[in-house]
Write a protein that binds this DNA or RNA. Sequence first.
DNA 1: CATATGTCCTGAGAGC
DNA 2: TGCTCTCAGGACATAT
Length: 303
Amino acid sequence: MPELPEVETMRRGILSIVGRQIAHAERAACKRRPIAIRPRIDLFRRRVEGKTVTAIERAGKRVVIWLSAIAGKSADTNQLPGTQAIVIEPRMTGLVLLGNPPTQEHLRFRLRFRKTGAATNGRHTHDANEVLFWDRRGLGTVSLLSADEFAAKYGGESKTLGPDALRLSVSELKNRLHSSRRAIKVALLDQRAIAGIGNLYASEILNVAGIHPAARCHRLGREQWNRLHAAIPLVLEEAIRFEGSTLSDGTYRNALNESGGYQNYHRVYDRAGQTCPTCGRGTVRRIVQAQRSTFFCPHCQRR
DNA sequence: CATATGTCCTGAGAGC
DNA sequence: TGCTCTCAGGACATAT
């Protein structure tokens, strides 16, 4: 379930590896069916060994580790911060960690770094020496892309990934969705339209915006688009401040294997039967849209 | 093209 | 108690 706030928390959690040089990349020795790693691990390893991490970015719900042959030097052919990108896609249960995985059983991939100049003034550095990808269900993926491949797949003109939910103007939001016949909740999950919103935050955002999840996009009015545009960063930034949501299954953790805190502040998600905290009047309801749960307040969320 | 549905996967929890 | 069943929802493939 990692969505934008959880993936952003993962990204921030591994920023300390910027500047580090990769010693080794490997599949973790787990007995489960191997996750998808592209290209094949031996080729992957050959292409990343000795490279330096230049930046950690986020592309929608993916963590992107940029690499360059020389520390701090960007690719000169474009504005991207490196020549190759390791793209980690957590999907349902994947975690990006600086060591200390919840179980060894579900450890899938490991990126080891060369040791830094060891002790400075007799004090050892606390830099992490590895980044791990842990995934209980094994639906996540790790891919190595050239800068060009990355640009084609996730760049500005990409058809697979829309503009990031945190960097979205009202007109962009409206232009991308207003002609759709789909229910607004379903459309918000479409990563080609807007990148980063998943099932949990779609419900939270619509509650804050006061919009009924089944409202059809093409019927929404100007005022509703404005409220939606305001609610998106409000909810996502609030969730980032609390380092994301760890649901009752306890799966999601930050890079240090600590729980998030935003689950305690959910307004509607998984709160069917409770009083809506936004209006204090309605009772939160659960419905199913496109085979996914939606939670909303029938009192204050209007079509 | 737009939209809808099926699939992958594991572990928790329900029900008998 | 232990079995079987259902459900959770990321991205993508396939169908309409």
